[in-house]
């Protein structure tokens, strides 16, 4: 299996942590991992993006129109990174409702047969008590929808491996909350 994932957002939204989650997940799934991250000055409140390629790849960067999945933790960063998605790709956006999304771009996504899912990950994470875990809520949600090849149990054990001790409990709770909501949508 080859999967190319783009993680997009702004500094402080846990992009690098999410990248760690998918890296370890890749290893767990028996896949090779390759990717690229933003560090340094661009992290000071700027756009942050991580490329992650699971499977047989040589280069760390994902090309325009090649990504299978885009996780975007902020609306505007979605517009900026949509070009990475291939036709037929999937896009998960941290957004209260899909109605908020730009109409003409939504139309374009339909033409390209890109699946679009908006989920209020920030809301879900805040409810459980940690706005900073919104990234995990969105990942959990994606697994719930069944649209991505990631198993809930695998994500759970990866979180156990990479979370800081004091965050683990909340992270697992948030993951589960996202997952359940995603599942609702599936049925």
């Amino acid at each position: 299996m080859n999967v190319q994932i783009i993680l997009a957002g702004i500094g402080g939204q846990g992009i690098l942590f999410s990248s760690k989650v998918f890296s370890e997940l890749g290893l767990k799934m028996g896949l090779d991992v390759m990717g690229s991250e933003t560090h340094g000055m661009s992290q000071r409140g700027g756009s942050v993006i991580a490329h992650l390629k699971l499977g047989k790849f040589q280069s760390p960067l994902i090309r325009k129109g090649a990504a299978d999945i885009l996780y975007s933790f902020e609306e505007n960063e979605t517009y900026r990174t949509l070009h990475f998605l291939k036709s037929g790709g999937i896009c998960f956006v941290n957004l209260e409702s899909a109605d908020q999304f730009n109409k003409s771009i939504m139309k374009f996504l339909k033409e390209k047969e890109i699946t679009f899912r908006a989920y209020d990950a920030t809301g879900a994470a805040s409810k459980i008590g940690s706005i900073r875990s919104a990234n995990i809520a969105l990942i959990g949600y994606s697994a719930g929808t069944g649209l991505v090849p990631f198993k809930y149990e695998d994500l759970r054990s990866v979180l156990e491996l990479v979370s800081r001790k004091k965050n683990l409990k909340i992270n697992l709770k948030v993951l589960n909350a996202g997952f359940q909501e995603g599942k609702l949508l599936k049925t």
């Binding site: 990248s19 890296s23 890749g26 290893l27 090779d32 991992v33 390759m34 990717g35 690229s36 991250e37 933003t38 560090h39 992650l52 760390p60 960067l61």
Partner: peptide
């Protein structure tokens, strides 16, 4: 930078 900040198994 794309080696220093690349990630790989």
């Amino acid at each position: 930078i794309r080696v220093s900040h690349a990630k790989q198994s």
